[in-house]
Simulated assay, not measured.
Amino acid sequence: MNWIFLLIVLLATLVGGLIPMVVKRVNPNFPIYMLAFTGACLFGITIMHLLPEVYHELGHQAGIYIVLGFFLQVALQTLSHGTEHGHTHVPTDKHQHVHLAPLLLGLSIHAFMEGIPLGFRFHDQAALSSLVIGVAAHKLPEAFTLITVMVHAHQRAPKLWRILILFSLVTPAAALLASELGAHSAFISSFTAYIVALVIGAFLHISTTIFYESGTKHHELSYRKVLAIAGGLVLAFLTLIFE
């Protein structure tokens, strides 16, 4: 396992969470365009790098698990309320209560799942480095939204730091676990391919939801958001130079 890759993902999560902690007033358009850019990048990398890998490993069965992963992410949203694709659901007054435990559980399960492909042994050498870019890009708005909800729920700074640090460790820990177990067991290594297919389905759900829903009114696509999406896709296409 490449420790630099894990460090990149860890730092991206920390940076995303730090923004709402240190910046008192964030421009409301910032998370919209950040989500659009990173969602498009994740979408492009999923299509260009991850899909070929799982179809190479699983054949036609890959499609079954991708669809299952798509709807698994739908189920996880009952816990996370769509935080992973930008839905904040912050309380409008101090008397409203935010159910933090289900939110953290849903996001942690999602974060663990997206770490597993980082420990997968890809045939295409460009796939892992490209995936790191996509996951790191996704962690920025994910952590940003999580901590934004926590700040609006009036959590104190020490607790915010504990939540952010622990959440930042979930994805690297999953990658290490998948890598170590896969290196010592052929069964687990082959089983990981099915998990990767599930994660692809989740990534497709998240990224496409970002395109048409997060931060927009009546599912509109402003020209600025289209430019952000285009920028994310360009970054995804640039990962092809790793091949």
Rank of each mutant, 00 (worst) to 15 (best):
M1F: 10
I8P: 01
V9R: 08
L10V: 06
L10N: 07
A12V: 01
A12M: 09
T13Y: 14
L14H: 08
V15M: 13
G16L: 08
G17R: 06
V22T: 12
V22Y: 02
V23S: 05
V23A: 11
V26E: 11
N27R: 10
N27Y: 07
P28N: 03
F30R: 08
P31V: 00
P31H: 06
I32W: 01
I32S: 03
I32M: 03
L35H: 13
F37E: 03
T38E: 04
G39I: 02
A40K: 07
A40M: 02
C41Y: 02
I47T: 11
M48D: 02
L51G: 08
E53R: 00
V54I: 14
H56Q: 14
H56I: 00
L58W: 09
L58F: 09
G59V: 08
G59P: 01
G59R: 00
Q61Y: 14
A62R: 01
A62G: 09
Y65W: 14
I66P: 03
G69I: 00
F70E: 02
A75W: 13
A75V: 15
Q77T: 13
T78N: 12
E84S: 11
T88C: 13
T88Q: 14
P91A: 07
T92D: 12
K94M: 09
H95V: 00
H97F: 12
H97R: 13
L100R: 07
A101H: 09
A101N: 06
L105M: 05
G106M: 07
S108M: 05
I109G: 05
A111D: 13
F112M: 12
M113G: 07
E114L: 10
G115C: 10
I116A: 12
P117L: 04
P117C: 09
Q125G: 10
S129E: 09
S129I: 15
S130C: 09
V132T: 10
I133T: 05
I133W: 14
V135M: 09
A136R: 03
A137E: 06
H138A: 04
H138W: 09
K139H: 12
L140P: 02
E142Y: 10
L146C: 03
L146T: 08
T148G: 07
V149R: 09
V151M: 06
H154K: 13
H154W: 11
Q155A: 00
K159W: 10
W161K: 08
R162L: 14
L164D: 01
S168D: 08
P172V: 06
S179N: 11
S179L: 03
E180Q: 13
L181H: 05
G182I: 03
G182K: 06
G182S: 02
H184M: 02
S185V: 05
A186S: 15
S189I: 00
S189K: 12
S189D: 15
T192I: 12
A197P: 00
L198N: 08
L198Y: 08
L198A: 04
G201L: 06
G201F: 05
G201K: 05
A202Y: 11
A202M: 15
F203L: 13
H205Y: 15
T208P: 02
T208D: 04
T209D: 11
T209N: 14
I210G: 01
I210F: 07
F211I: 02
Y212N: 05
Y212M: 11
Y212H: 13
E213Q: 13
H219D: 01
E220H: 04
L221F: 01
L221I: 10
L221T: 02
K225T: 01
A228G: 06
G231A: 08
L233E: 03
V234Q: 05
V234K: 02
L235V: 15
L238H: 11
